[in-house]
């Protein structure tokens, strides 16, 4: 049986911590001690397998979201240091929540479902109610005759940085597919913009969305 010192020699040899002289002497020992050599080979193999199966670098799930979340945290910390912005919720905090997009889309869908395209909509008719998940955000909606659209206004969000891409769609109507339990949203050209449904807990879920073309 090896003494602790000998075990440490084996460890140091395995991990490349020996000087050239020590290494030569230890390897000479290995040739004369089959049991020690067998142990050394086993540890070498274990070491190789560990390095093979425990990669030093791994793909980060949702890598872009990982980065954006860090930027959100940095912005929040900066806001905390700024009393004028401290109580304002971050738009990114909202956007990080997968349900927000779908909830917002659901609200629009609800409004559209109530809208008869042949009838000129009146202010306040399109969105019957709005659920706002944060008390620091005030939401209201109105109909813009000029834009021929229902406008959803959220007060209390941070300013959107100028370099963020904002994608907008002018949704004109929606169709419900009872068989698939899905709702498809269409733009003014009749092009499908997004397909929505609900998941097992009856929360809205975005199934697919068309890429935005300016």
């Amino acid at each position: 049986m090896n003494t602790p010192t000998e075990d440490h020699d084996l460890l140091r040899w395995l991990d490349g911590e020996m000087s050239a002289v020590e290494k030569t002497a230890f390897e000479a020992r290995l040739e004369t001690e089959p049991e020690l050599k067998s142990e050394a080979e086993l540890l070498q193999r274990l070491s190789l397998d560990l390095r093979t199966h425990l990669p030093a670098e791994m793909p980060v799930p949702y890598a872009d979201f990982f980065n954006s979340q860090i930027q959100v945290r940095l912005a929040q910390e900066e806001n905390r240091q700024s009393p004028t912005l401290g109580s304002r919720a971050s738009v990114f905090q909202w956007l990080r929540l997968p349900w927000l997009l779908t909830s917002a889309a659901a609200m629009i869908a609800l409004g559209l479902a109530l809208w008869a395209p042949s009838t000129a909509p009146q202010a306040g008719q399109l969105v019957h109610s709005i659920y706002v998940p944060s008390s620091s955000i005030q939401a209201r909606s109105y109909h813009s005759e000029e834009a021929r659209a229902t406008v959803l206004v959220l007060d209390g969000l941070e300013e959107m940085p100028a370099d963020r891409k904002i994608v907008g769609f002018n949704l004109m109507h929606s169709e419900v597919d009872e068989a698939l339990a899905s709702t498809t949203l269409y733009d003014g050209e009749g092009k499908a913009v997004a397909v929505m449904s609900t998941h097992a807990k009856s929360q809205p879920v975005l199934l697919t969305a068309a890429p935005h073309t300016p």
């Binding site: 980060v60 990982f66 980065n67």
Partner: peptide, 15 residues
């Protein structure tokens, strides 16, 4: 600049 550093090292830190 920090975002670039995050992108550069996130894979190793996550591992």
């Amino acid at each position: 600049a920090f975002d670039v550093l995050v992108g550069r090292y996130r894979g190793r830190i996550y591992a």
